[in-house]
Simulated scan of single mutants.
Amino acid sequence: MSWQNFLNAVKERRTYYGISNELTVSEKEIETIVEQAVLHAPSSFNSQSARVVLLFGKQHEKLWNIAKEQLRKIVPAEAFAQTEAKIDSFKAGAGSVLYFEDQAVVKGLQEQFAAYADNFPVWSNHSSGMLQFVVWTALEQTGLGASLQHYSPLIDEDVRNEWGLPENWKLIAQMPFGKPVAQPGEKQFSPLEARLKVFR
């Protein structure tokens, strides 16, 4: 793959809120994408602290039912219809990728390299962000649309209990995906000259 092809894939990645439960590729192919991303996305000190849960179908719907019921507890009744519609738009998808960071790994690095202890939680988040981007961009290349959501810590305990996950897995983000049924709006860009400086 040339760098131009890679950057084209980067450019094509967008946020899709309108998705259906159709898939453009098989569940197995999506599993392979996530598997390869987990293996090869970079991490600080090669810590490999990322943990991922991939949900399809009814399991995916269960996630967004959890989110809806937790939000129902805190969102005023008169405003809940809008919140419910938003959650249902994620639930309408075909699956979700849940991104976690293993805090046992982070703590181990803090103990092993005390001079950098304050940095490891930050670097852990950097690693997760890179993994999210790799998966998101790859899903886009299959014709699927996705978005990145953050309903932590509201849903953390229910998610951990529902799927029997370890206490030390910290939920970072949720990525619902499916076949796009609505196109994203035009992307606006801040002036590049205010964002990039080159010195020779």
Rank of each mutant, 00 (worst) to 15 (best):
F120G: 02
K170F: 02
A117R: 00
R160V: 13
P166W: 15
L165E: 09
L144W: 01
T142F: 11
F133W: 14
A173D: 01
Q110G: 10
A115Y: 10
S128F: 02
N125K: 14
S128P: 12
P121E: 09
W136E: 05
E157G: 14
V135D: 01
Q110K: 12
A115P: 04
V106W: 00
P121I: 03
N168Q: 15
N168C: 13
N168R: 14
Y151R: 13
G164N: 15
W136K: 04
F133G: 07
Y116W: 13
V135K: 00
K170P: 02
L139P: 11
T137S: 15
V134C: 05
G178T: 09
L131A: 00
M130D: 00
Q141L: 09
V134R: 02
I155Y: 11
E140D: 12
I155N: 10
E111A: 12
G145Y: 02
P176C: 07
D156T: 11
F113G: 02
G143Y: 11
F120D: 01
W136S: 05
A117G: 02
K179H: 12
M130P: 02
S152K: 15
L171P: 07
D156P: 04
L171G: 06
F120L: 05
N161D: 15
K170E: 02
S147L: 08
A173I: 04
G129C: 07
L171D: 04
G164K: 15
G145M: 01
H150C: 03
M175A: 03
Q110H: 11
H126E: 01
M175Q: 08
A114D: 08
K170G: 00
W123T: 03
G178H: 05
A117S: 08
N161H: 15
V122E: 00
D118G: 11
F120A: 04
A138W: 07
Q149L: 13
S124P: 04
D158Y: 13
P176S: 07
W163K: 10
F177Y: 07
A115R: 09
V159F: 14
S147A: 08
V106G: 03
S152I: 13
S147C: 12
S124A: 14
S152A: 15
E167R: 14
H150W: 07
R160T: 14
D118A: 10
M175L: 08
W163P: 03
A117V: 00
V159D: 10
K170S: 05
Q112V: 03
Q132W: 04
Q110L: 05
V105I: 13
A114M: 08
D118W: 06
W136I: 04
K170N: 09
L171W: 07
E111P: 10
V134D: 03
P121H: 08
P121A: 08
P153L: 06
F120K: 04
W123R: 05
G129P: 02
L165T: 10
F113L: 09
V135E: 01
Q110W: 06
T137G: 10
Y151P: 10
E162A: 15
S152L: 14
E140P: 05
N119Y: 12
Q110T: 07
W169D: 00
I155K: 14
P121K: 07
G143N: 08
T142S: 09
N119E: 13
L165G: 09
G129E: 02
L109H: 04
Q149Y: 07
N125D: 13
E167G: 13
L139Q: 12
V122D: 00
V159A: 12
G164M: 14
M175W: 02
Y116C: 07
